[in-house]
Each structure stands twice: as C-alpha cells, then as structure tokens.
Simulated scan of single mutants.
Amino acid sequence: MTEQVMVDPISAEGVSQRIAGSDTWILRGCSVQLPRAGLTAIVGPSGAGKTSLMYCLSGLDRPAEGRVLLDGTDIYRLGRERRAKFLRDRVGFVFQQYNLIPYLTLEENVLLPEQLAGRRVPRDESTQMLARFGLEEKRTTVASALSGGEQQRAALCRAMLLRPSIVFADEPTGALDSANSQLVLRVLRDLTMQGTTVVMVTHDVDAAALADRVVFMRDGAITGVTGPLDADSILARMRQLPADSTREG
C-alpha cells in the first residue's frame, strides 16, 4: 500500500512582485509554508505588502518571480481556464470591497457563485448559513441597502457556501463592530476545526491574536513567522523585527 504524502495547502517560494509597468518592488522574496486546518494572520504596517502577498498566494495575481503551490499544485503553471476552475472549486475569497452586485438581494448575491458554477444549494442550507451570520431577516434586501457590516457578513457567507478547502480574507473585521467582529472570527475559527485553512490579512491585533500562526511583514518582505501570540506581543514584534530576518519562533 502506497503511503500518502501530506502537503501543505499553501506554499510560497521566493515570491516577488513589482508595480505593473515599473521597477518598484512591492514584494521581495517571500517564502512561507502554511499548515492545513489552521488560522494564519498576516500583519504589518500599511504598505507592508500584506494584501499583495495574499493576492499572489490566492492565485489572483501572478508574481513576477517565485512560485505558489496550493494543495501541491503550482497554480501559475496552469492555464487561465484551468486555474479559474481550480480556484473556484477549492478557494474562497472575502475582499475588503465585498464585491456584491448592488441591485441583487442579499440572498441572490450569496447564491450567485454556486449558480455560476452550475451547482444548486438546498434552500435549507442557504437559510442555515444566513442565520449563522444573523442575516436571515435581510435575505430579500438589495445589497445597496445593506450596511457595511451586513455586506461584509454577506461576503463571508457567500464564500462559506462554496465549502472551500482554503479561505483568504482581506480585513474580514474591518467594517464590523466588536460584536459582529467576534461572530466573524468565531466562524473562521470554526472553519479550521472542520479542516479548512484560513488566511486573513488584518490590522486588528486582537483578531491576529486568535490565529494559530502569525506572519509579519514590512517593506514587502516577510520579517518573521511565529506561532500564536497575544496582542501585546504582536505589537511589540511588529515594532522590533528588522526587514531582513525570516524565522520561525
């Protein structure tokens, strides 16, 4: 019997990126391996390259140098259509901009990716998911009439319905009050308990303190990778780490 080799769901090797049409580098030789079924927070000051790294890791932005493997697949060696299908089947995205269609209802927005993929979500399943995020009473409200917090929760709900093995979230609590932030973070934590790998970019050190692993960035480089830390330790490390040292601690 052949022994199955487990691979990290996310592996980046020497990922560098420059601003389109210029020689300005916004990512510099980023390498990281993230384990399965964990919550990782990417932190750093504004302009550190956090979102740029997430876009390269998630298959949305081809790096100028380096490679990215998701579940062992070198995603940028895939053709455009194959990569789009791979990401659709395995990866969930939660963006800062929410990307909801303003004239569709909340429920229509949540179900749209499944419909585009030719799948049918049972009504009770979508109802349960909306209730989980406190959105069941807003299901027929058009997206343009939702608050920022409701739109953020709708975006996360939409990603969860796809049952992805990997979820990338860009500032998932950025538009939320403390109660809704805790709800969203609890859902993300629950996902890891079900085997999903979650990566979030965040400025919120309290959110980062809930992560199993913290990736620190500055000036486009990964300056450190640690296990779980409390909020004060995360702040202290962000101030102290030089931009040329990558280590596990």
Rank of each mutant, 00 (worst) to 15 (best):
T140K: 13
T140Q: 13
T141M: 09
T141H: 12
T141Q: 10
T141V: 15
T141F: 11
V142C: 08
V142K: 03
V142T: 01
V142Q: 03
V142R: 08
V142E: 06
A143Q: 02
A143H: 05
A143F: 00
A143G: 06
A143K: 02
A143W: 05
S144L: 14
S144N: 13
S144G: 06
S144Q: 15
A145L: 11
A145R: 11
L146D: 03
L146T: 05
L146Y: 08
L146V: 12
L146E: 04
S147P: 12
S147Y: 14
S147R: 11
G148I: 12
G148S: 13
G148N: 12
G149R: 06
G149V: 02
G149W: 03
G149T: 01
E150N: 08
E150A: 07
E150R: 07
E150I: 00
Q151F: 15
Q151L: 14
Q151C: 15
Q152N: 11
Q152C: 03
Q152Y: 11
R153D: 03
R153L: 08
R153P: 05
A154Y: 09
A154H: 08
A154E: 00
A155F: 07
A155V: 04
A155W: 06
A155R: 10
A155Y: 02
L156Y: 05
C157F: 08
C157T: 09
C157G: 01
C157A: 13
R158Y: 15
R158E: 11
R158A: 14
R158N: 13
R158C: 14
R158L: 15
R158W: 15
R158P: 02
A159R: 04
A159I: 02
A159F: 06
A159V: 05
A159Q: 04
A159K: 00
A159T: 05
A159M: 03
M160E: 06
M160H: 13
L161W: 12
L161M: 15
L161F: 15
L161E: 01
L161C: 13
L161Q: 10
L162Y: 11
L162C: 15
L162G: 07
P164V: 01
P164W: 09
P164N: 07
P164K: 05
P164R: 08
P164D: 07
P164G: 05
S165P: 04
S165C: 10
S165K: 10
S165W: 02
I166P: 04
I166D: 08
I166M: 01
I166H: 03
I166Y: 07
V167R: 04
V167M: 05
V167A: 06
V167D: 04
F168P: 06
F168H: 02
F168G: 08
F168W: 04
F168A: 05
F168R: 02
F168N: 09
A169K: 01
A169T: 07
A169C: 09
A169V: 07
A169S: 10
A169F: 08
D170M: 03
D170E: 07
D170Y: 09
E171C: 12
E171K: 09
E171Q: 12
E171A: 13
E171R: 10
E171F: 14
P172Q: 06
P172N: 00
P172Y: 07
P172G: 06
P172A: 06
P172F: 08
P172D: 05
P172I: 10
T173F: 08
T173I: 10
G174M: 10
G174C: 11
G174Y: 14
G174N: 08
G174A: 13
G174V: 11
A175C: 13
A175Y: 06
L176Q: 03
L176R: 04
L176D: 09
L176F: 09
